[in-house]
Design a protein around this nucleic acid. Structure first.
Lengths: 249, 249
DNA sequence: CGACGCCTTGATCAACTTCAAATTTTGTGG
DNA sequence: CCACAAAATTTGAAGTTGATCAAGGCGTCG
């Protein structure tokens, strides 16, 4: 007995082998492509793995490739002349990485964890966008989602206290790792994709403050710090409360 | 002798009268439409004027219309349960207002100044998006621009000092009112579309701090406060410096 | 083991907020 | 056009939050 997916893959035997079990084809943008388009894309595909901290694209340089994130977390950062830094976005698999219709990068992209990418030359994506309205639609919708997230984060950066910021960050990670986490209120363990310095750059704080607020949340019993990269949350409901008012109760 | 524009308008005599001299057709999204599509859109168009402070769309309510901004400035805001507020975007004519592919508003939209809108029922825009890839492209590109701006602003919110924030705000307004202002370095007078309380909500500060930083910039000779809503900048270059380091020199 | 990177904790300090009040601007009706 | 009330802005003094500076602990990898 074949599952629907298997039948589909047999039927579309011209789907590149590397794409056949790729998450980007199911949840990501490649799902918008016909087998022929996928085959075309597959011809110009490069899969690469990057160590943590590796720069994937530098600010103010020409855009040469676009990518799908196969696994890992990518941070998008802005840097000021004097070294101040702000993370302006986190991207998770199977997000599309890159800014269509631009010549130059306006942010730099860096691997926050070990990252695997499936990359394509700029012209290939441009051609596919022109030929596949469904692909463009997928990209458009991801951009709208990113804009929603950026605006949500602006509220966090502009108006929340340090403690609320840290709680908001934990919630953000929880919801990306496990989209259902939003609703459930039970116990969850969150693997943090960022080190303290990155969390600070994401929250507009210093490392010291992030650390202090984390111990503060621990002492209040909202979280348990299993290890520096792993946090257990007793009740997401309480964490949510901490992200909006801090005062608890 | 006819200009090219006049010839075009005569040729396309089925272009709705209200659209013929509309900025949205030249710089905005309506430029993507054929005369027939424009005629269809024109049938379902409502032009309305709103006083300053009027709410145009409330958070957590169903989306019923989309609009083009004909004139004025619209602020997009997020509100926390305890009343803290953050402006997460400013939109200027001839921006498109509204979030495609969503059922509900995730921000509220409010007129910052007197605003004139050209509004369309939700289904009309949805139908046009399906039928006009050029329209979808325009919307996609505006969204990408907004995302770029949101990320730029995240750096401002997270990492800049109060003084740098105020200077950044003045630059932002200057560049939207007069796109060429970016390059020129001469004297410019900026009409502020927001009152102090709104500026504070945009910058993640308090009214008092905004006011103090403005007088600080005045005493440093970077700006001249003509009236509370009108600021003259001697050198945009110096203002730019103030937006990135504060220390001047 | 020892060095290095990362994280935490403590003490002090500066920036921004809060609270309070004065001053200016704006809008309205006579 | 003026007078007056309401709203917006500015200014001052005191209080908090988070930053900075400094030191120490933990874990990992050679």
């Amino acid at each position: 007995m074949l599952t629907e997916k298997q039948r589909l893959d047999i039927h579309n035997s011209d789907v590149p082998v590397v794409c056949q079990s790729c998450e980007a084809r199911h949840k990501g943008i490649c799902g918008a492509l016909s087998p022929e388009q996928l085959a075309f894309l597959g011809k110009h595909t490069t899969r690469t793995s990057f160590d943590r901290e590796r720069e994937l694209a530098a600010n103010d340089t020409d855009i040469e490739t676009y990518s799908n994130i196969l696994s890992g977390v990518v941070k998008l950062t802005k840097l000021m002349a004097d070294g101040r830094q702000q993370i302006v976005g986190l991207q998770f698999a199977p997000d599309f990485l890159g800014r269509p219709f631009a010549e130059q990068n306006v942010v730099s992209a860096e691997a926050a964890t070990q990252v695997r990418l499936c990359s394509f030359p700029k012209w290939v994506i441009e051609e596919i966008i022109e030929r596949s309205p469904r692909m463009e639609r997928k990209l458009y919708q991801q951009t709208l989602r990113e804009l929603d997230e950026a605006r949500e984060w602006m509220l966090t950066l502009g108006r929340k206290t340090a403690c609320e910021k840290v709680a908001s960050f934990l919630l953000l990670v929880a919801s990306h790792v496990d989209p259902e986490a939003q609703t459930q209120s039970g116990m969850v363990t969150i693997e943090l994709p960022l080190k303290r310095a990155d969390i600070a750059d994401f929250l507009g704080l210093t490392v010291e403050t992030v650390s202090r607020q984390l111990t503060h949340l621990r002492k209040r019993g909202v979280v348990e710090v299993v290890s520096s990269r792993s946090i257990t949350v007793g009740s997401l409901y309480r964490l949510q409360a901490a992200a909006e008012s801090g005062s608890d109760k």
